[in-house]
Design a protein around this nucleic acid. Sequence first.
DNA 1: TCGCGTCTTGCGTAAACCCGCATCCCCTCG
DNA 2: CGAGGGGATGCGGGTTTACGCAAGACGCGA
Lengths: 241, 241
Amino acid sequence: MKVLIVEDDPLHRSYLHEAVCSALPECETVIEAENGIAGEQLARDHKSAHIVMDLQMTGRNGIEAARTIWKERPDTRILFWSNYSDEAYVRGVSRIVPDGAAYGYVLKSASDERLKLALRSIFVESQCVIDREVRGLQQKSIGHANSFTDSEYEILVDIALGLTDRAIAKRRNLSLRSVQNRLQHLYDKLDVYQASPEDRLDSQFNLRARAVTVAFLRKLLNYSALERAEAELQDWLNDQS
Amino acid sequence: MKVLIVEDDPLHRSYLHEAVCSALPECETVIEAENGIAGEQLARDHKSAHIVMDLQMTGRNGIEAARTIWKERPDTRILFWSNYSDEAYVRGVSRIVPDGAAYGYVLKSASDERLKLALRSIFVESQCVIDREVRGLQQKSIGHANSFTDSEYEILVDIALGLTDRAIAKRRNLSLRSVQNRLQHLYDKLDVYQASPEDRLDSQFNLRARAVTVAFLRKLLNYSALERAEAELQDWLNDQS
DNA sequence: TCGCGTCTTGCGTAAACCCGCATCCCCTCG
DNA sequence: CGAGGGGATGCGGGTTTACGCAAGACGCGA
């Protein structure tokens, strides 16, 4: 068995290395990459390797790297090991995982035990292991109450990128009014309407900008999500030319 | 000599602990805190302690913690040890450092040597040690060309929070037009006007939202800055009531 | 096949934004 | 002390947003 570790923090990398060796005695090779690009390359070079991947890396982040790796070899087993359980990450991951792939998501705050167990479950038993906390988010993200549908999330990203209603309409193939319609749903769900109930009507807030802010504060969006979205946007803009 | 370490990642914490012991043999006590709140408390309990602090922590982050610590004891020596050199962090730190205080800012990517040298310089020699890369930012942030004045930064934060022009005017004691004036300067500097020169005039972008986005992508803003700004905003809103 | 909820569109309006043009005020520099 | 530059304001108007109202469109069980 081979394991590829993709993690940019040297301390965490060596900790992982040790954890892998101790949890998987049958593993004879451990390879390390310190960023997403190198990780993709090494994954190509070592076709049979299982992967442990950090999500937050500078440059090419874990989600992007995982996407290209899975694109080339969908049955790769990947364990995401992250500091955070931002909804943006969780959503990002579940958006790219191929059907039937075995993968995992454990938080860095988890105990040694938990990490080792996850390593064995995924790489030996081919089981999915999702951290309880992350799982909670996924559930909520599907159960419709107070959570976000894909179309709402989509439009959230679009305004976060700074597109106009018109541009969104063009991009998503909708009428102007539909875009605005979706926006209203978004505003409702994000509860952007200032907590001041019987306060004066001057709402103080620019709904569009405020929506992005509260999404950020709620971890619905984060830097990495924005970065990816911006890249996609640029692609689209080029196609448009 | 006493040293207080404030850092939420256990691996980094123990690494720091070791670095401190080896760089400062004269240090007889090392105390650890795993978040900002605990850090503030321990700083109160150990008046003479020097501090090494992480910036990015969940809950109360390093900048907030440092601010209250410095408020109570302005001559405390603090070494910030961070993963990033986002302009938002650099700006946040230099905004709160008291006159004449000895402090430091080194990146986690720095070598052992660099870290140990910084520890000795600050805690023994009372010198300021700013990482070269961070220093670069600070300079640029003062040299006016293509950098941001405080008033521009201020209004950037305000729109990032989602305030309307009117609300900003009230908050900053400006006329509506002045707010819009500053906004235009901001848009200029952020170069929000779509890179498409001779492209069709439909600018695709909602300037206000786009400005926030590019500020984020350029690390002029980050989560922690938003969080702080939001807290200040809430205070202000309450005063308004 | 009917009925119902959800999503999409149009129309129309009031409010918020973006911004060129033109004063004023204040500070600095020669 | 006068010239010049930068920021604060007013005025005016063209755009874009936010959103109520209402008519279709689509899908899905009874």
